[in-house]
């Protein structure tokens, strides 16, 4: 088990290193720089500022400097918000992003699994059709369409919830969390439904029925694990989807998270901030993938022995 974790962490570190290197060079090679858009500054001033950020050095030296900083967990100051370090900016935005992401994952898994199980147990019943409809809507209507529409209806028209921002406590959370979890509710409920139907056809479930232990116990003790394994395997990709979605959600609902910073930073060539957020997202994704693998190994004895 420990060997498995170490191996996965090592692989994750390699992936992260590749990601960071790629991001670094892609950013530098992309046309334009952090200060090239600023027409008010004279070329001398720009040269001056670039020198303080070491942007005048050759690329490999900049990379070395970046790696050295990374090893000391210091990503340096943002080039756009010059008074803040990347660490500060991330630290100030992260709680918002994490709160929304956390609730979106919770809502998506509980609602998704519940809908999927209900649909599988009563195929072609009312719940099944309702879940199917939610599934199709969640998959086919993108966040950036349903988000603004819900904003228009529930915030502007009905005034049930705030339009955006983070000033109304939990009420500010409602729309963003619903919109962010919707696509994942859709995927998870479909996945759960097919997985459960497949599991109920397994020979070992037939054995359990033959033992006469009752329908409930058969489902609870003998079908649930088999049903949930593929769903748990999907939680890694689901996290990635939530990261993607949170960038949109924070833009749509004007939330002060880090997702919103990322697009700004990329468009303004804020190299240090882009690197910082990339590192954070990449790291989160890798940790989540490892965590889901561990949970699967914990649930499935067949996965425990081979690394």
């Amino acid at each position: 088990m420990i060997r498995f974790v170490v191996k996965r962490l090592w692989n994750g570190a390699l992936t992260l290193a590749a990601l960071v290197t790629l991001t670094f060079f892609v950013m530098r090679l992309a046309p334009g720089g952090p200060f090239s858009k600023n027409r008010k500054l004279s070329p001398e001033v720009i040269a001056n500022i670039e020198a303080t950020y070491h942007l005048d050095e050759p690329l490999w030296m900049q990379f070395g400097r970046f790696v050295w900083g990374l090893l000391r967990l210091d990503l340096g100051p943002s080039t756009r918000f010059r008074d803040y370090s990347v660490g500060d900016i991330i630290a100030s935005g992260l709680p918002y992003s994490l709160t929304i992401g956390f609730w979106a994952v919770i809502v998506a898994t509980t609602v998704g699994i519940a809908l999927g199980v209900a649909g599988a147990l009563r195929r072609n019943g009312f719940t099944d059709y309702a879940a199917g409809t939610i599934g199709v809507i969640g998959i086919a209507i993108p966040i950036f369409v349903i988000g603004p529409v819900m904003q228009a209806v529930f915030a502007l028209k009905l005034s049930w919830v705030p339009v955006g921002g983070w000033n109304d406590g939990w009420r500010s959370l409602i729309l963003p969390v619903i919109v962010l979890s919707l696509p994942n509710i859709a995927y998870i409920s479909r996945l759960t439904r097919t997985s459960m139907i497949e599991t109920m056809r397994e020979n070992y479930v037939r054995t359990a029925r033959a033992k006469g232990i009752g329908e409930w116990r058969t489902i609870w003790r003998h079908t649930l694990k088999g049903t949930l394994l593929p769903v748990i395997a999907y939680l890694g990709p689901a996290t990635a989807a939530i990261i993607t979605g949170s960038i949109l959600i924070e833009t749509i609902f004007a939330l002060p998270g880090i997702g919103r910073h990322f697009v700004d930073a990329a468009l303004n060539r804020d190299y240090p901030l882009v690197m910082g957020i990339t590192l954070l997202y990449g790291g989160l994704l890798i940790l989540f993938n490892i965590a889901t693998d561990l949970v699967r190994a914990w649930l499935d004895p067949r996965l425990r022995h081979d690394g």
Binding site: Y204, R206, A208, A210, G212, P301
Partner: peptide
């Protein structure tokens, strides 16, 4: 169903064709 469950596994039981897949792999 309930009455059948009192018979199955108790006074009437069955062994299946395929032993490789007939046991619950998670238990």
């Amino acid at each position: 169903p309930r009455a059948l469950d009192r018979v199955r596994g108790q006074s009437l039981s069955m062994i299946f064709q395929d032993p490789m897949t007939s046991l619950n792999p998670f238990m």
